Amino acid sequence: GNIFIKNLHPDIDNKALYDTFSVFGDILSSKIATDENGKSKGFGFVHFEEEGAAKEAIDALNGMLLNGQEIYVAP
């Protein structure tokens, strides 16, 4: 299952995104959108192997604080 994450703190990188979401299941890919200079655009995507893991991550993390910013997590 794919999920979309927005309002990410600029310091959150691909590894931090992966580490945050990997507790919910096996991740096939995770990516933070960046500009041409490699600076985070504040949103990203995680693709879980299983749909159930994606739903669990959405339920658990939507509205949670990550590096002091409330993140939005949705399908």
Rank of each mutant, 00 (worst) to 15 (best):
Leu28Gln: 07
Lys41Trp: 03
Asp59Arg: 15
Gly25Val: 00
Ala16Glu: 04
Leu28Thr: 06
Ser29His: 00
Asp19Val: 12
Ile58His: 11
Glu50Ser: 12
Tyr72Asp: 03
Gly44Arg: 00
Thr20Pro: 02
His9Asp: 15
Asn7Arg: 15
Asp13Pro: 09
Phe48Val: 02
Ala54Leu: 06
Ile5Tyr: 01
Gly38Trp: 07
Val73Met: 09
Asn7Ser: 11
Ser40Asn: 15
Asn2Gly: 01
Ile27Cys: 03
Ala74Leu: 04
Ala54Tyr: 07
Ile12Thr: 04
Tyr72Ile: 08
Met64Thr: 07
Lys6Val: 00
Pro75Val: 12
Lys15Leu: 06
Ile3Val: 10
Glu36Ala: 14
His9Thr: 10
Glu56Pro: 06
Tyr18Thr: 04
Lys15Asp: 03
Tyr18Asp: 07
Ser29Thr: 02
Ser30Cys: 11
Ser40Tyr: 07
Phe43Thr: 02
Glu49Tyr: 11
Ile58Ala: 10
Asn14Met: 08
Ala53Glu: 10
Asp13Asn: 11
Phe24His: 04
Phe45Thr: 01
Val73Asp: 03
Phe21Leu: 14
Glu70Asp: 12
Leu8Gln: 01
Leu17Phe: 14
His9Gln: 10
Val23Met: 13
Pro75Ala: 13
Asp26Pro: 07
Asp11Cys: 12
Asp35Ala: 14
Ser30Asn: 06
Asp13Cys: 09
Pro10Phe: 14
Asp13Val: 05
Leu17Ile: 08
Gly68His: 15
Lys55Ile: 12
Ile5Arg: 00
Leu61Trp: 05
Asp19Asn: 12
Asp11Gly: 08
Ile12Ala: 04
Gly44Met: 01
Ala54His: 05
Val73Arg: 02
Lys55Gly: 10
Glu49Val: 12
Asn62Lys: 14
Asp35Ile: 10
Leu66His: 05
Gly42Ser: 14
Ala33Cys: 15
Ser40Asp: 03
Ile32Pro: 01
Phe4Trp: 00
Ser30Thr: 05
Asn7Ala: 14
Phe45Tyr: 11
Phe24Arg: 02
Met64Ile: 11
His47Leu: 03
Thr20Ile: 06
Gln69Pro: 04
Leu17Arg: 00
Asn7Ile: 03
Thr20Ser: 15
Phe45Val: 00
Ala53Ser: 13
Glu56Thr: 11
Asp59Lys: 09
Gly44Asp: 00
Ser30Ala: 08
Gly63Tyr: 05
Lys31His: 03
Ala57Ser: 10
Tyr18Trp: 07
Ile12Lys: 02
Asp35Tyr: 13
Phe21Tyr: 06
Gly52Val: 14
Leu17Lys: 01
Glu70Val: 11
Gln69Thr: 15
Val23Lys: 05
Gly52Asp: 13
Phe21Pro: 02
Gly44Lys: 00
Leu66Ile: 15
Glu36Thr: 15
Ser30Met: 03
Asp19Thr: 15
Leu17Trp: 01
Ala16Ile: 06
Glu51Gln: 10
Ala16His: 05
Gln69Asn: 15
Asp59Leu: 15
Val73Thr: 08
Glu36Ser: 09
Tyr18Cys: 07
Leu8Cys: 05
Phe45Met: 03
Glu70Lys: 15
Asp11Phe: 13
Gln69Ser: 15
Tyr18Glu: 04
Asn2Ile: 01
Ile32Thr: 07
His9Ser: 09
Ile3Phe: 01
Gly44Val: 00
Phe24Ile: 07
Ile71Ala: 09
Asn2Thr: 00
Gly38Asp: 10
Glu51Val: 12
Asn62Phe: 11
Pro10Ala: 14
Asn62Gly: 12
Gly25Cys: 03
His47Thr: 01
Lys15Thr: 05
Asp59Phe: 09
Ala57Gly: 06
Glu50Thr: 08
Lys39Tyr: 08
Glu70Thr: 15
Leu17Tyr: 03
Ala74Cys: 15
Lys31Asn: 03
Ala54Phe: 11
Asp59Pro: 06
Lys41Asp: 04
Ile27Ala: 02
Ile3Ser: 02
Asp59Tyr: 10
Gly25Ile: 00
Phe24Trp: 11
Phe4Val: 01
Leu28Ile: 04
Pro10Asn: 11
Asn7Glu: 05
Ala16Cys: 15
Gly52Thr: 09
Glu56Tyr: 10
Lys15Val: 06
Gly52Tyr: 09
Pro10Cys: 13
Ile5Cys: 07
Gly68Val: 06
Asn2Cys: 00
Lys6Arg: 09
Asp11Val: 10
Leu8Pro: 00
Gly25Tyr: 00
Ala16Arg: 04
Ile3Tyr: 01
Leu66Thr: 08
Asp13Tyr: 04
Val46Gly: 04
Ser40His: 13
Lys55Trp: 13
Glu70Asn: 12
Gly42Tyr: 08
Ile71Asp: 02
Lys41His: 05
